[in-house]
């Protein structure tokens, strides 16, 4: 079976999940999740804590294997692959807490990523001399972080770490980037700015994103589509406007934040 996207062509969606199931103890974290993610449309995932949003990201990137169900990347079954192989096929992941190598500089983090992507053709080369250095500086430029290229990550602010974490993910040349609360931990005055830079960088790099987000302001402004998660499955899906005005969503998810 090949899914047909909205344009009616036979090209399979960028990422598709079919009937994902998984339970942790008594909690059903994924209850028959069938999703299609189209290239070029940034999808926000919202929903209450424990609804299975992060589990969904972890299944798509191979960190958690579903008890049943499958994940397809452009029609290819990637369910059994280990995380590092899924990364190489173009699905990258950014975590709630940036997973940077804190004892290395921002640029070195990107270079390590590039070296991991390219494999080791010349393992004894100096990391700073690898061919991809200019490309990595360009990525730092995309996330407005060239000025901190040579600073060690521990010295950087949370907002800068978030942006560099995204640049590290982009260094892997993904087609799809899954992000868990990309602006959590960032001062609320800077959230929109960080998100603005981030979305701009992704668009520039031609990367589709899926992000879990609690801040409805961010969702309204930066997502092309929204999926509402509840009890381990997608409850609703639509444009930000449709979703944010939906009575169920206002009641269950947004609740008092808006009222």
């Amino acid at each position: 079976m090949t899914a047909t996207n909205k344009a009616g062509t036979a090209k399979p969606p960028l990422l598709e999940t079919r009937e994902l199931m998984i339970k942790f103890g008594g909690v059903t974290a994924a209850n028959n999740v069938s999703m299609q993610i189209e290239a070029g449309r940034n999808l926000a995932i919202i929903g209450p804590n424990g609804a299975g949003k992060t589990t969904f990201l972890n299944i798509c990137t191979g960190w958690i294997k579903p008890r049943s169900g499958k994940v397809f990347l452009e029609g290819e079954d990637i369910t059994p692959l280990p995380p590092r192989k899924i990364v190489r096929r173009g699905v990258a992941r950014a975590f709630q807490i940036p997973q940077l190598f804190t004892e290395h500089t921002a640029l070195e983090n990107l270079l390590i990523s590039a070296a991991a992507r390219e494999g080791l053709r010349n393992p004894l080369q100096n990391l700073h001399n690898i061919r991809q250095r200019d490309e990595m500086m360009h990525l730092l430029d995309l996330v407005h972080c060239t000025d901190v290229a040579d600073r060690v990550v521990v010295e950087l602010s949370e907002g800068q770490r978030k942006l560099i974490d995204i640049a590290v993910a982009l260094a892997l040349k993904p087609r799809l980037l899954l992000m868990d609360e990309p602006t959590s931990g960032v001062a609320s005055s800077q959230k929109h700015e960080v998100m603005e830079i981030l979305v701009g960088a992704l668009a520039e790099a031609g990367v589709t994103s899926v992000f879990v987000e609690h801040d409805m302001g961010i969702v309204a402004r930066h997502a092309d589509e929204v999926a509402v998660w509840n009890a381990g499955n997608v409850q609703l899906r639509g444009t930000p406007q449709e979703i944010l005005e939906h009575p169920d969503v206002i009641r269950d998810v947004i609740g008092e934040e808006v009222a």
Partner: peptide, 9 residues
């Protein structure tokens, strides 16, 4: 070296 950095990472 590149491989050294990957080991440290």
């Amino acid at each position: 070296t590149v491989i050294g950095k990957l080991i440290l990472a």
